[in-house]
């Protein structure tokens, strides 16, 4: 009974939705019924179209994430550890952070056209800041007393980094990671919707031109599922890596 509880509301909504379509309260051009969406899902997955588009979108998302997140992580670590590096770059980065990255879309299209680079650039830029800010915060909040202990006990600088600084910053880095994953999908959706010749966003825009509302709904749901999947993986990683922390340990 307890396990069923969270499913009651979504299932009821689904039933009401189906019923509304059935009785003509909801026009198919506005919102096709769940059964039609399921049929559309079956259609596009059988043709191989869906799988291909998911592959393209996922690759874009993670390539952009790797580039932006990688640079954000390295700079965050560097600025957290070196006051010189922080003085040099942090205030500049904080200024750039105030520009919404999606506002750069016109400029990005001018620079890169509508190819892959434009999408990679936008995703990387969007992901960079949450990872950077949280890594920096994580390094700064590492317990000074532990650092002193490490030095007093003769740990090398390398050992201090890998055994004190990095694990100490990890909870905060995970916050950035999960936040960055959200921004990653969001950016990709916007970028693919504006201009693309493949990917889930393209599938949605293409379907819109032919008034295939069911396929549009399928693409929206796929985005949601991918986002949820990425978040679940991040959570699992978090629980594994932070098992020492009672907050994250499994009950």
């Amino acid at each position: 009974m307890k396990r069923a509880l969270p499913w009651i509301v979504p299932l009821t909504i689904l039933l009401l939705w189906q019923a509304a379509s059935q009785f003509g309260l909801l026009a198919d051009q506005v919102m096709p019924p769940p059964t039609a969406v399921a049929a559309a899902f079956w259609r596009v997955s059988r043709s191989g179209e869906l799988l291909h588009d998911i592959e393209v979108s996922t690759w874009r998302a993670f390539a952009g994430f790797a580039v932006g997140g990688g640079i954000g992580f390295v700079l965050g670590m560097l600025n957290g550890l070196s006051p010189v590096s922080e003085k040099l770059t942090d205030s500049t980065l904080q200024m750039v952070r105030n520009i919404p990255h999606l506002a750069l879309i016109p400029l990005v299209i001018l620079w890169f056209g509508i190819g892959e680079e434009a999408k990679l650039f936008l995703v990387a830029l969007g992901v960079f800041f949450p990872i950077y800010v949280n890594t920096l915060h994580g390094v700064r909040s590492v317990d000074r007393q532990l650092l002193e202990m490490g030095r007093a006990y003769g740990m090398s600088e390398r050992a201090i980094f890998w055994r004190v600084v990095f694990p100490g910053a990890l909870p905060s880095i995970f916050v950035g990671l999960r936040y960055g994953l959200g921004i990653m999908w969001l950016t990709l959706i916007v970028a693919e919707t504006i201009s693309a010749s493949s990917g889930i966003g393209f599938m949605a825009m293409n379907a819109r031109e032919f008034m295939m509302v069911d396929v549009v709904v399928v693409s929206i749901l796929i985005y949601a599922a991918l986002g949820k999947l990425a978040d679940s993986v991040a959570r699992l990683l978090e629980r594994t890596c932070l098992a020492w922390n009672p907050v994250y340990a499994e009950a």
């Binding site: 532990l146 090398s156 055994r163 694990p167 020492w244 922390n245």
Partner: peptide
């Protein structure tokens, strides 16, 4: 070190 188990924490004393 909260992220190291007891034995690994004691091994910190052998860093040199």
């Amino acid at each position: 070190l909260p992220w190291q188990r007891v034995a690994a924490n004691v091994e910190v004393g052998l860093s040199h």
